[in-house]
Amino acid sequence: MTLWQWLSAALILFGATLALTAAIAIVRFPDTLTRMHAATKPQVVGLILVLAGAAIELYGHGNVWALVLVGLFTLLTAPVVAHLIGRTAYREQRHRDGLLTVNELGNEID
């Protein structure tokens, strides 16, 4: 295998490992906010690593730009979904008591 194939293999395997760890965290974490954290951060990094590995493997085909597009789009959209879920979870009091050391929003919410 060439150097590029080794790099592609490493990226894909590491990305899949991150996806697996994110799934384990989604099962094991105790409440919605912590699960949202796991679903957003390692999952998105794992997906981008897999896309990078696939782009290296498919280099030379004309439309590999689509993988770059998916990666950029994922980077932009995942925080939006996480924010929406976190905001809704907070407003419905789905976090553990004492979890927030400083709750700056606590008195402002109507």
């Binding site: 996806a19 799934a23 999952q43 997906l47 896309l51 085909h61 993988l67 979870a89």
Partner: peptide, 27 residues
């Protein structure tokens, strides 16, 4: 339902990763 939304979002990322791995493998 928020936990289910988290799960669905995660599943979509896993599906996209799976498609990318298959595309890389099958060229």
């Amino acid at each position: 339902t928020l936990d289910r939304v988290v799960g669905i979002d995660s599943l979509m990322a896993i599906a996209a990763s799976g498609l990318a791995v298959w595309a890389a493998y099958s060229q």
